[in-house]
């Protein structure tokens, strides 16, 4: 049977685009091959590692198991879209650098996209919820703690809790002043 192709119209990183795609192609393939958005990584291609995560209509998806044709009419964001017009990094990207949350960097774009969804949700996640929200991502290098801290600090800053953000210690725990000892 002949291969089937379809035209897809969508918005990628704020730009309206259209492409003809093989109906079997994944969104990862379309973003990487047709648009050169190589921040979208191919880690496992089975939905396990989260390296291919992009935001579709405001929510994180594993683009490796999402058909490109399903992107019709959708608004998609990849890591490239977070960079400002003058090449400035977004605050969540900067936080990953500041907190040493990157080593080889392969998992980083995926982690940042999920983190971006989290910090822009306007919700204050508990430590437990935050860990769970990040649990669809695998990192072989960092040991997760630095990533957790980068996301937690940025989330708190987005909520205007600047002082609290500074109190997040190296284990990702918010440190409050010791209570006065009983006399």
């Amino acid at each position: 049977m002949d291969k089937q192709y379809k035209v897809v119209h969508c918005t990628i990183n704020g730009k309206k685009v259209e492409r003809i795609v093989d109906v079997r192609a994944s969104l990862t393939d379309m973003l990487r091959n047709d648009f050169r958005l190589t921040s979208v990584k191919k880690g496992c291609e089975v939905g396990e590692c989260g390296a291919c995560t992009v935001i579709i209509d405001g929510e994180g998806f594993n683009s490796c198991i999402y058909l490109a044709v399903w992107a019709e009419g959708k608004e998609i964001w990849t890591l490239e879209g977070l960079i400002g017009p003058g090449g400035e990094l977004s605050d969540i990207q900067q936080a990953f650098i500041d907190e040493g949350a990157i080593q080889c960097g392969f998992c980083t774009p995926g982690f940042i996209m999920t983190s971006w969804e989290i910090v822009n949700s306007g919700k204050e996640y508990t430590d437990d919820e935050l860990r769970k929200a990040l649990s669809g991502h695998l990192c072989r290098c960092t040991g997760y703690e630095n990533i957790f801290r980068a996301v937690k600090k940025t989330m708190l800053r987005h909520l205007g809790k600047f002082e609290e953000a500074e109190k997040v210690n190296s284990q990702g725990i918010t440190e409050y002043p010791e209570p006065m000892p009983f006399k």
Partner: peptide, 9 residues
């Protein structure tokens, strides 16, 4: 299903 991104799908 622990992964939030997969739960979205």
């Amino acid at each position: 299903m622990a992964s939030r991104t997969k739960r979205n799908m």
